[in-house]
Design a protein around this nucleic acid. Structure first.
Lengths: 218, 218
DNA sequence: CGCTACCCCATACATAAGTATAGTATGACT
DNA sequence: AGTCATACTATACTTATGTATGGGGTAGCG
């Protein structure tokens, strides 16, 4: 039976595919419960049985009793990866269509360009991460409480950039950073708040610079 | 001194290195117990404390309560890698890891919730599109010139929502919409601008409502 | 018909793994 | 002398996760 993967039962094949995609998505393998949820199942046992079947067929590696040790063996991993085929059956698009420009002022007649606004693709691959904003100190820069900022890890910011600053006591805050004689100034964008001044002796770690902002409107 | 990784405490640095190497070795991230064993420690708690410290410094991504969710963020991952592989087909993730909450105000030592911020996936599939903002009329709502808004097609907005309004003459604008006696009011979020009043006879088409906002920092 | 492969469910249990609390010890710095 | 960061330990708790047991169905096949 050389063509094992092709004539797998549908659900087993689906499990195989999900293991690969969920692992890629999170950076670590899924649990049975997560697989079950992804398949719309109420019970882990169903997935358990499927995985046992896959294991018997030597398509997955699974350490008994070990959490999240589920990995796909050999070529099966490649075969289940999305990258191979033309676009259509893709579950979701990579990006939001950018329909054009709109006026937030005098109305203009908009809608021209036709491309895709790819928010994540550039960031996710370059080690960026997101932080949820708590507080209003960057309000004047249009960063509101509850927004998400996307941070690119980078220890050496340029002057005036918005950075994630980790202070000596382990607390983190979001501010614009300016070099001053003898140290740094962490400047909030809110007229009611005072800057934080640090001299060189004090411990300051810049975790990264803000490269993007995202807000959800309920 | 924004030199983060170099002057980490030795054990924390070791933990960072071990996370990477153990993940490569097994194909999935280690648990605290495994890390402890690899470091010759008898107790998980020691590693736990180190990892918490790394998390505060935003060097690792760790979902609370989730087994084997420990991953290294950003360049730190590269720096700790021994193999120096070209990092080839980096499993491009679906989404940006949401590392926690950061203070834009008084520094807090937060960092609690953890998940992935999936910006596009929810929108791209539901017919949403993006528009680039031109003008400052929504400034007080934190929508700036050059931002991108994500619009969900929907002809019947609720009161007070931000909508893409297409006027009778074909021009489009972004405003909050309110029902008034006998018509609608399109309200800018800028104290220096006046609302647009429309009565029912006038042609007003709502293209959709704003469900998201995205901004790129150059 | 019995038999099999496939697919799903629920309950219960055992253990793996993360977390809280509370200590001890060392060295650096004030 | 005190405080602080680092580093480790121990016990106990909660939850996440895997597993066993015992059921249901459907469909094809000899």
């Amino acid at each position: 039976m050389p063509e094992s993967i092709e004539d797998l039962p549908p659900r087993q094949r689906e499990v195989l595919r999900l293991i690969v995609s969920l692992t890629e998505e999170h950076g670590y393998p899924p649990t049975l419960a997560e697989l079950a949820q992804a398949m719309g199942l109420r019970n882990r046992m169903t997935v358990h049985q499927h995985v046992v079947a896959l294991k018997k067929k030597l398509l997955v590696h699974w350490e008994p009793g070990l959490n999240r040790s589920l990995t796909v063996i050999g070529e099966a991993a490649q075969d289940q990866r999305e990258s191979t085929l033309p676009a259509e059956s893709q579950t979701s698009r990579r990006g939001v269509p950018l329909a054009g420009t709109i006026a937030a002022g005098r109305p203009i007649d908009a809608i021209e360009t036709d491309e895709y606004l790819e928010i994540e693709s550039g960031y996710a691959d370059s080690g960026c991460f997101a932080l949820k904003i708590k507080g209003d100190s960057m309000l004047d820069d249009g960063i509101h409480d509850g927004d998400y900022v996307i941070v690119k890890p980078q220890p050496t910011p340029r002057n005036g950039e918005i950075v994630v600053a980790v202070l000596g006591d382990g607390t983190a805050t979001l501010k614009r950073i300016y070099k001053e004689k003898g140290g740094f100034r962490l400047q909030p964008a809110n007229s009611q708040m005072e800057p934080i001044l640090l001299d060189k002796s004090e411990n300051l770690q810049v975790q990264g610079v803000v490269v993007g902002l995202f807000r959800k409107f309920s």
